[in-house]
């Protein structure tokens, strides 16, 4: 079977990503996004980055998607009430994106790193190796990211709190 797994999963992720953008119902978009993230998890497993696969599975498919679904259902947006952009604007958007894709791929074509991906160190993406890296040279950024998460939590609570009516 060789490398065909990669191409199969890549096709699936491109298809699901397109469905995320072009689905009419926002709920369907979220569900397709979950499938897209699942295919990305498979990509990480194929790269033997097991830690990233597990983190992707838990953080994206667990936390972030539940957040999206909760917000969609709290706002009661499951009906299609999005006013359509004019067809001209849509076509212009797709053309602009296509230009970006052509530019990216064309400019990266000249780089031509065509050697096949070879894993020199099979334990590269395992938890032990990454943990040593994370708590060694990356200690300070790691602690700072915990601070970032704390401030995001406080900010989210502060933003969504109902404002007190001040009578004055």
């Amino acid at each position: 079977m060789g490398t065909s797994v990669f191409y199969f999963v890549a096709t699936l992720s491109v298809f699901f990503a397109l469905m995320v953008v072009f689905a009419k119902n926002p709920i369907h978009s979220v569900l397709y996004l979950i499938l897209t993230f699942f295919t990305f998890t498979v990509h990480y497993i194929l790269l033997n980055a097991q830690f990233l696969a597990v983190v992707n599975f838990i953080v994206y498919m667990g936390a972030i998607m539940v957040l999206f679904l909760f917000v969609l259902m709290l706002l009661n947006l499951n009906k299609q009430n999005e006013p359509n952009k004019s067809t001209l604007l849509r076509v212009i958007g797709v053309i602009a994106g296509g230009c970006l894709a052509v530019t990216l791929i064309g400019s990266l074509k000249s780089v031509a790193i065509a050697d096949p991906l070879v894993l020199k160190n099979p334990s590269l993406g395992l938890v032990e190796n990454l943990g040593k890296e994370l708590f060694g040279p990356f200690m300070l950024p790691f602690e700072l990211s915990s601070l970032l998460l704390l401030s995001a939590m406080v900010g989210a609570v502060l933003l969504t709190k109902k404002e007190e009516k001040t009578n004055g």
Partner: peptide, 24 residues
């Protein structure tokens, strides 16, 4: 089984997904 995929194809695939995000 995966050893054969060229790095180029990863770059193209990620560029396509990124472009889909931009179009969205």
């Amino acid at each position: 089984n995966m050893q054969g995929v060229p790095l180029n194809h990863y770059i193209w695939f990620c560029a396509i997904i990124f472009t889909i995000g931009v179009i969205g």
